[in-house]
Amino acid sequence: MSTPLVSVIVPSYNYADSLAVCLQAIADQTYPAIEVLVVDDRSTDDSVAVAEAQGVRVIALADNGGCGRARNVGVASTSGEILFFVDADVAMAPDAVAEAVAILQAEPGVGAVCGIEDPEPLLHDTAVARYRGLQYHHWSASGEGNVTFLFPAMCAIRRRVYQEVGPFNPALKQTEEVDYGYRLSRRHQLRLTSRVRGRHDHDHQLVPLLRKLFHRARLRIPLYARARRFATGFETASRAWGSLAAAAAVPAVVLPVLLGPLWSVVPVGLFAASVAADRPMYALAHRLRGVRFLAFFVAVHFLVNVTITAGVAVGTLQWLVSRPFRQLYDSTFPAEATV
């Protein structure tokens, strides 16, 4: 088979700590035909200096516009037949690019290939990072196959497909990947595969992680209201019910106080239901990390479930009262937006 040029595009914002590891992993790729571009999204740390020290071409943007815009700039400034987006806090396995190209060459119907991150965090090995790495790995791996949810941390897209689907929406700074995955999967197969692997420098503090998950859940509401379906491959009905059960368990703790100790079965049952909704994930945490970590994992994921439900609730309220919020994804539905 031919060896098409692959443009590896790294959007970066204040990732100086991990950027050198990311770029070294790109340099270590077994695939021979690669050009690399870092698009710095107005970092305030030493990211530009780190990239330049690696001998990589850098485009430094004048203002911060988000990952979507940075990826668009990278596409316009490269020439590869295949675009490979890599987040600056990800270190790819040495064969990641080669595997993605092999899939695209073997399956013409596949428009894009996304990778699955290993459960071990890349740099910050805190308990929260270990939780997030394992949780994100399991949710991704359990959806392996054709999906509608773009995983842009490691993602190869045919340039002609990108040109057909159009650029990332620069107005979206936190949910551009959900929007793009929906747009792309309506026209082409979007493949999530463990053949493309890497390690991610996950969130290593609890409050920033919960804040991010809250806003991502909130900002998904206008898209899902228009699409009338969840994204395939990451969000499942059982996980949605698990989040609702966890959130319902919080107010239910007052029932034993108000109505008697027998009512304690309600919050306990709701908590058990939230765990049962994703039982394989907890089994994986126990198998890889043991009982003590499992207890921590259960507690953190309970908070995550409550946070996601709160984000959905706030997003739903915002959707009901705010017309601009309802129109956040109108460019994804141009015909409906016109009507």
Rank of each mutant, 00 (worst) to 15 (best):
L123D: 03
L122V: 01
V113S: 03
Y136A: 06
R159K: 09
E164V: 02
A217V: 03
K173S: 08
H202N: 12
A156V: 03
R158P: 11
L190E: 02
P121M: 05
V207M: 15
P121W: 09
I116N: 05
Y182C: 01
M154N: 05
S140K: 07
S185P: 11
H204V: 00
Q189I: 02
R187M: 11
F149R: 07
H137N: 12
H202S: 03
V147R: 06
L150I: 00
G181S: 06
V128L: 11
L172W: 11
L184Y: 05
A171R: 14
R187D: 07
L219T: 03
V147N: 10
L219F: 14
A217E: 13
A171S: 10
A171Y: 14
L219N: 08
I116D: 08
Y162W: 15
E117N: 06
G181D: 04
L219I: 00
Y182S: 02
C155S: 08
R158H: 13
D203H: 13
I221L: 14
I221K: 09
D118R: 11
D125G: 02
Q205I: 00
I116A: 04
N169A: 07
H200I: 01
A129G: 08
R197G: 03
V165E: 13
A171G: 06
A217W: 14
V196E: 07
G181H: 05
I221V: 15
R199P: 09
A141L: 11
R191I: 04
L190R: 03
N169S: 08
Q189R: 12
R130V: 00
L122R: 02
G181F: 10
R220D: 11
Q205K: 11
T175E: 13
R216I: 13
Q189M: 09
L209V: 01
L150P: 08
N169I: 01
H124Y: 11
A171L: 14
G145R: 02
E176L: 07
T175H: 14
Y162T: 00
Y182Q: 01
L184Q: 03
D118A: 11
R211T: 08
H200Q: 07
D125L: 04
G198K: 02
V147G: 07
L172Q: 05
R160C: 12
V128I: 15
M154Y: 10
F149I: 01
E117R: 10
R220C: 12
R187G: 00
E117Y: 15
A129K: 06
P167I: 03
P170Q: 08
A127K: 05
V165K: 06
S142H: 09
V196D: 08
R183C: 12
D201S: 09
D203R: 02
G143F: 07
E176D: 13
R160S: 15
Y162S: 01
A141F: 13
R160P: 00
R220W: 15
Q174P: 01
Q189P: 03
V207E: 15
G133M: 10
I116E: 10
N169D: 15
P170D: 10
Y136L: 11
P208V: 00
L210P: 15
H124S: 10
G198R: 04
D118V: 02
Y182E: 05
Q189S: 05
P121I: 01
A127S: 10
S185Q: 06
A112Y: 07
F214L: 08
P119R: 04
R195A: 10
P208L: 10
R216Y: 15
L219G: 00
R197C: 04
F168C: 04
T126R: 11
